[in-house]
């Protein structure tokens, strides 16, 4: 066996081992959570609010709260993020200003989420006077996800083949017509993937909402943008570290983790499914 063949074989083995290890780890984590949390999982667990200092009952309030937070955050983040991506891809020139802007947005993606939390606290909660609220928390989450969204959609628009644009212009379309009728639809699958990945990230964040609107406990689901909300990640954090009866809430903790995990996994796989369907619809 010559050296090249040997190296090839080693590389193959190495890749397989790495892949197996990673899969094993994911399976182990999920398995651990499922085994521990499975027993408390029931429909009641999902539709009942926490009771008796959170040692009983379900997780209805934090679950709905998370959905509300994600929905509101996306309501703000999607238009701004996609529009900014479009601006960078289609309109921005190649000058200093846009380069700096781009760089700033890229580096924002690397900022720790707790910094976003503090930023949200000072801007939305204090300066704008929203108080700790669904709105303030959602806006903070929106800020957190913007860099990802902008970059993802910019890439998506840039990836639309020049051929489509040429064909559209050659038929007498204006720039906006070309963007609306050709570029946007063609980029949609990729943009949607980016959005869904952001949703997954947003749903699991604790730090940004801790100071801006997540409640330790709320008796009801939030009825206005200005009330505080419970959220799954924060709920877990509370149960595990700050509750009065930490030991007694163990099963509930694992149940909640399992639900959050399923939620995020569900959103992601839903997104991937949707993308592939859209892809198939658009091109082949």
């Amino acid at each position: 066996m010559d050296g090249r063949r040997f190296a090839d074989l080693m590389m193959t083995i190495f890749s397989w081992v790495a892949a197996l290890l990673l899969t094993g780890m994911v399976v182990a984590i999920i398995g651990f959570v499922v085994v521990r949390g499975y027993s408390v999982l029931s429909l009641d667990f999902l539709i009942e609010p926490p009771r008796d200092s959170m040692t009983r009952g379900g997780i209805m309030t934090p679950l709905v709260g998370t959905l509300q937070l994600v929905g509101t955050a996306m309501f703000f983040a999607i238009p701004v993020g996609v529009a900014t991506g479009l601006y960078f891809a289609e309109y921005a020139g190649d000058d200093m200003f846009t380069s700096i802007l781009r760089l700033a947005i890229r580096s924002l993606a690397g900022v720790p989420s707790v910094v976003f939390g503090l930023f949200g606290l000072s801007l939305f909660v204090i300066l704008l006077g929203f108080g700790p609220s669904l709105l303030a928390a959602a806006l903070t989450l929106a800020c957190l996800t913007l860099p990802l969204m902008v970059t993802a959609s910019e890439q998506a628009f840039l990836a639309v083949p020049k051929d489509y644009r040429d064909a559209s212009y050659a038929l007498g379309a204006s720039k906006w017509q070309t963007i609306r009728k050709v570029v946007l639809p063609a980029a949609a699958p990729t943009v949607i993937t980016g959005i869904i990945l952001s949703v997954g990230r947003v749903a699991g964040e604790t730090a940004p909402i801790m100071f801006t609107g997540a409640a330790f406990f709320a008796p009801h689901i939030a009825r206005s943008l200005f009330s505080e909300v419970m959220a799954l990640p924060y709920h877990i954090y509370v149960l595990a570290t700050a509750g009065t009866f930490i030991e007694e809430t163990r099963p509930i903790q694992y149940g909640t983790v399992l639900v959050l995990l399923l939620l995020v996994l569900g959103i992601c796989s839903g997104g991937i499914y949707m993308r592939s369907r859209l892809r198939r619809l658009m091109r082949r």
Binding site: D166, A170, G172, S174
Partner: peptide, 21 residues
Amino acid sequence: DVIALRRNVGMVFQKPNPFPM
């Protein structure tokens, strides 16, 4: 009117490029 011009002068490209529709 460049739009009118392009309507009057159609173009077919080297690589077939139908829109994804």
